[in-house]
Design a protein around this nucleic acid. Structure first.
Lengths: 197, 197
DNA sequence: CGATCGCTATGACCGCTGTCATAGTAGGCG
DNA sequence: CGCCTACTATGACAGCGGTCATAGCGATCG
């Protein structure tokens, strides 16, 4: 992959996110992360003195920033930006992955929430922050499309909620059906919010 | 709780679901399940010769049936059944729990999916089955309300996707905001499907 | 009584996990 | 050269996980 050009620290965070996505937090071992990143095991305690908790939190933060940054790219890919178009792009990223690479992974933020929300406060906070840095750009994009300010945030939450749930169902069923269904059903509602400006 | 009247086997399945909901599958130990159920440790290998995998699968199945059965009760509680009313009830179950008992637990089916989808096929199938036994009654209820057959299933998937995602976000944020938001935003769309019969 | 069967009780085993301790290497810099 | 810092390399450890083996209880039934 192209990321192997980055430093070992960054590679480990990236690998952690990838493994958490697949197996969940608890089932992902530190040694496994190092091996997957092609990094020496000794570097773990050097770069992440806070232990697994720190590594997981950074992986979650990375995932949140990644999702947030994708939004701008999705908008750029749309000939004319519409809420339904943005949502379709967000969902499409997942259907594409599932159809080409299989249903191995879900959302790492969701995995961290499920596994750590009650046990590890800092990770729960990291997950909340990740959702925030994801929701922000989406809400901003909606506002730019003409959605009233206060509804933009609500619709962004709705979009991400629906996407996360559909990812879960798709992964359980090993079928993109849920993903395609929610794009089709939610699109009209999202676009209707623009006309009501 | 009232369930302590049931047999030890059933109690263990119930306890498993409860602990999985809280900490995820991997972080939930067999010994912990037995202790929580007030059941002897030796009974685990007696009632669940298939080991943890069997216990988890049964817990997931139980959760699916539970969710499916709730639908009928939700409908009975509605003066006049509407899609938005049903959805509001489904969400309300979670806001009520979170406001009175805290944000300790999520959906056990979601937890099983995140933790086991890639590692344990039988559990992934159990999760898919659970989603199916949950979606079925919801779709049926929508159809009874006048939603066209083919859209009823799609809307049921949309409702459950959105709910699952909102649960995740609410738990991460320790705030019911996401849950209340999705009810408010999704309600009108759901009711619009009835008028288009 | 004796036997059988459902269930309980424990203890041991092995593998794996996160973490720590300690020692080693490489490279820049005075 | 010597030194210091950044990073790497291993090995050990303590804990916990699921699972198996074996033995014990208790009641029902022949």
């Amino acid at each position: 992959m192209a990321v192997s050009e980055r430093g070992p620290r960054e590679r480990m965070v990236f690998s952690a996110a990838q493994l958490i996505r697949r197996d969940g937090v608890a089932s992902t071992g530190m040694r496994e992360v190092a091996a997957h990143a092609g990094a020496p095991r000794g570097s773990l305690q050097h770069y992440f003195p806070g232990g697994k908790e720190q590594l997981v939190n950074e992986a979650v933060g990375w995932a949140g920033r990644y999702a947030g940054n994708r939004v701008a790219r999705f908008l750029a890919a749309l000939p004319e930006p519409t809420p339904s178009g943005l949502f379709a792009q967000m969902v499409r990223q997942w259907t594409d992955e599932y159809e080409t690479s299989g249903f191995a992974g879900g959302c790492p933020v969701a995995a961290a929430t499920v596994d750590c929300a009650e046990a590890t406060v800092s990770t729960r906070e990291a997950a909340a922050a990740a959702f925030a840095t994801w929701t922000g750009p989406v809400a901003g994009a909606l506002a730019d499309m003409g959605v009233p300010e206060e509804r933009a945030g609500a619709l962004a939450t709705l979009m991400i909620s629906t996407l996360e749930g559909a990812i879960l169902i798709a992964r359980a069923e090993r079928d993109v059906r849920a993903l395609t269904t929610v794009t089709r059903e939610l699109g009209p509602l999202l676009d209707a919010a623009v006309r009501a400006d």
